[in-house]
Design a protein around this nucleic acid. Sequence first.
DNA 1: AACCCTACCGAAAGCGCTTTCGGAAGTCAA
DNA 2: TTGACTTCCGAAAGCGCTTTCGGTAGGGTT
Lengths: 351, 351
Amino acid sequence: MATLGRRADGMSLSQLAEHLGLAEGTVSRALNNYPDIAAKTRERVANAAREFGYRPSSAARRLARGVIETVGFVLPARGAHLSDPFLSEILDGLAVELAAHDWDLIVAAVPEDHDEIEVMDRLVKSGKVGSFVITRTRRQDPRVAFLKSSNLPFVVHGRTDEHDDYSWLDVDNKKAFVDAVTYLHGLGHRRIAMLGGDTEMNFAWLRRAGYLQAMEDLGLELAPGYLVDNVADGAGVANAMAGLLALAPAPTGIVCVTDSVAIDAIAAIRRAGLTPGREISVTGYDGLATGAAIDPPLTTMSQASYEAGREVGRMILALHNSTKPQISHILWEAKLTLRASANPPVTAPAN
Amino acid sequence: MATLGRRADGMSLSQLAEHLGLAEGTVSRALNNYPDIAAKTRERVANAAREFGYRPSSAARRLARGVIETVGFVLPARGAHLSDPFLSEILDGLAVELAAHDWDLIVAAVPEDHDEIEVMDRLVKSGKVGSFVITRTRRQDPRVAFLKSSNLPFVVHGRTDEHDDYSWLDVDNKKAFVDAVTYLHGLGHRRIAMLGGDTEMNFAWLRRAGYLQAMEDLGLELAPGYLVDNVADGAGVANAMAGLLALAPAPTGIVCVTDSVAIDAIAAIRRAGLTPGREISVTGYDGLATGAAIDPPLTTMSQASYEAGREVGRMILALHNSTKPQISHILWEAKLTLRASANPPVTAPAN
DNA sequence: AACCCTACCGAAAGCGCTTTCGGAAGTCAA
DNA sequence: TTGACTTCCGAAAGCGCTTTCGGTAGGGTT
């Protein structure tokens, strides 16, 4: 007797079929809800499958159907770690949404001597993933270019400069920073500076744009040196703050591209003998937990990462299910969390 | 003519073989370095494969070979997010190491109405993963029990109470806290308290054990209330600190299970009108970047997460390559980072 | 010149599924 | 009772690889 396929990881279709006295094809169709299977049979099959904990081999299934129900996610390049506090939440949301439809998530990293495109290409060529989710986009992002040219389904958490022809979910970074500046202005601040991030990164660029726009709309003077770009965490902030504090007049309010920068900025202000939240107000962005514990508690803005992950998951699935791939653009608003690092300036505004 | 297999995601073996005028089997063996292929042929095949960017379909390969070169990683349950600042580094290291051998990493999450074991079981039954890496272990961890009973290869980043019969990589949490207490003792502290974490979690339990052991070894009195377990971030710390500060005598030094707790503790001390690092010294654990920016900069301990991820990757691969699966136990030491939150107590030790 | 080896490659089976196709029962109307 | 449909299931091909098994051609021996 020909030995039935015995999968090391469980039962095989042939075993299940033999147990039921049915043909493999019949069992398969029953499990996949084909209309040409008697209701009674379908149920009998379903019960047996449940009883034995049968699950079709995903490799065999993929090979037979030619459909890849796995999405790829390439981790942001090393070094950027510290700046993405919510990776795990995004992954979590994404994976949960995918799992609900029996899809999987392959997470890949970029080794030292390779680049992101190579990694993605490998994944595609070997048929390991059929779509991608990417995050932390640069304004000109080679990953997006690659994906567009390969016409794989993909959705971007974030955006690029040109973002009309693909699906994305982003937070309105620009508006968030318009709001931050406007908030400080409402508090009485007139000399508002910004500690910006890597201008190649899209989120940093848009926050910068929001700052600039609000300054203009509010008729505030953008004094030379008030906008500091490409501020790196740690020493970068210390240097930038030294520059800002040496200015005459020095700013009374500073909007920071991230909480991490803001926390460093607050430390620098204190080291300069000033009181953060008094002589100089500070706002951040991210809603880090530690921001609430520092002195003064950081006024900041946050976004719902877990929910974003889930929504992105839904978008990817939608891309597959609709025959006519609908590209969708979703823009969420950041939530302002008022704490104590931003207050009316102690010196009356020059205005 | 029979149309050659045309993979949507690239070229197929049959196409490559036809192009070369060779049989599929020959090309396959050439690519896999079988000894029965002429050197010249092997090279010709390799060149063509490179030229066309050919990569074997992983699904077909897996099906034919029956080997699953994918490891599963189940994200820690939601809610624990904030307490794992280094997930992305671990994933990064792990994925990089795996990628070097063309292995993949599937990251799964646990949906609301399921548990970790179900998720893992699904992954195994459907042949999606052939081994697992798990992190953030509890002292009694059902995942470890599941994996042991299923005899899948797996390695644990962390440990459980019983940890002799599986491979793990862990940081010596106990020694780290012995060191922390000893350090405070060396500074002159005699009344040392601990803000501990979830005692179900193995790392928290071991840090607690380290505290206890050092207290005993150093002959320090463990005053009632000095050891606070199950302290949750935020409000939990505030409550715990209120209790500690109400004690008579109050501790002069506090070792905290994590930086996050320590940062909250420092805030509480300041709110109580005391100066952290003066009347009360504080140490943390994790080496969070923000710890360096707070006032006073946090004295803490850290571990190399990226490297840990890589090492765990190597361990998984080793489990597969050796016919006789070697279980290995690797214990790393935490690195002490001296900053300014721990200093000699202002009041002379009672000794 | 007949022999045996070795080196090398082709043929074919098989991995565990899905899906198309055809045909055997069963159903209904005439 | 016959014919025309339905309903339902089995058979078989095929997805893209890997691997075993032969078999042929060439090189060495005696």
